[in-house]
Every structure is written in C-alpha cells, then in structure tokens.
Amino acid sequence: MPITVSMTVNGKAVTGEIEPRTLLVQFIRENLKLTGTHVGCDTSQCGACVVHIDGTSVKSCTTLAVQVDGADVHTIESLADGDTLHPMQEAFRENHGLQCGFCTPGMVMSAVDLVKENPDPSEQEIREWLEGNLCRCTGYHNIVKSIKAGAAAMRG
C-alpha cells in the first residue's frame, strides 16, 4: 500500500508515493535520481550512504524514507556551489583523498558533520569519527589528511 512522503532534499521540497519498506537511500537514488549517495553494503556497515538529516549525519540505509517525513535532508549533491567545490571536497581532491571514489560521498558527508561538531579535530579524533566509514581501497591515510585540510579550510 503506497504512502506519500514529503521532505526537503537539498533545499527543494519533494514528495513521493512509495512503499513503506523503502529505505531513505532508495528514495534518494531511485525516486529523486540523486545518485551521488552510494550503496556499498545496505546493511549499515560501510557508510557510503551517509546523508545529513536535520543537520546530523545518518546512514541512509538505516532509515526508512517514511521515518524522515517532513525532515530536512542534505546529500553530497548539496555541497558544491555550481562548479565551486565545498572546501571539504576540494581538500579531498588536493590531498588525493580518494582512490576508486566509491566511499567518498559518505566520507565527505561524515567529515562535514565532524567539523561542525569539532572544528579542529586531531588525527586521532578523525580516525575515531570515521569508524563507520569503510574504504575498501584502504586509502585512510590520505582521507584523514584530506579531512584535516578540509577542516582548516572550513575554519577559514
């Protein structure tokens, strides 16, 4: 029995008719065609699907779309301003913070949330924060470097 959900995604009001079992990540990718949010495992381990719900990072495969009815959702697509990358995205590019790039959207969204809570995280704090984001290329060293640089850029 399809039900109607409405939410704000990347500043735009969206509505969809979906099955109750639809995960938020499916709604974002399949209904809204925002495919920047990746599905790595869909069992809440890898963190490739991290988005922000009302300003907090959440794995979008851990949430049903109907649960966030009325919420303000931001995906990786909301970060760049036209062709100008967000400072965290720029830092990933500058510091070779990605190899195959599959985990990158989740890494960047987690990193932005971290910096919001902790504007100047230490390497240890970054590594602890990233416990829920897996990189199968094992590119963690440069990811941590990127986040350190991104945090500095965001502090301005």
């Binding site: 809440s44 963190g47 991290v50 907090t56 990072s57 959440v58 794995k59 851990t62 949430t63 987690s110 924060w129 416990e131 829920g132 984001n133």
Partner: peptide, 9 residues
C-alpha cells in the same frame, strides 16, 4: 555499539 551514525539511532 556501531559507529557514530549508528549511535544516533
């Protein structure tokens, strides 16, 4: 239990 994002839920 779980990661930062799991802790939120």
């Amino acid at each position: 239990i779980g990661s930062t994002q799991i802790q939120g839920r």
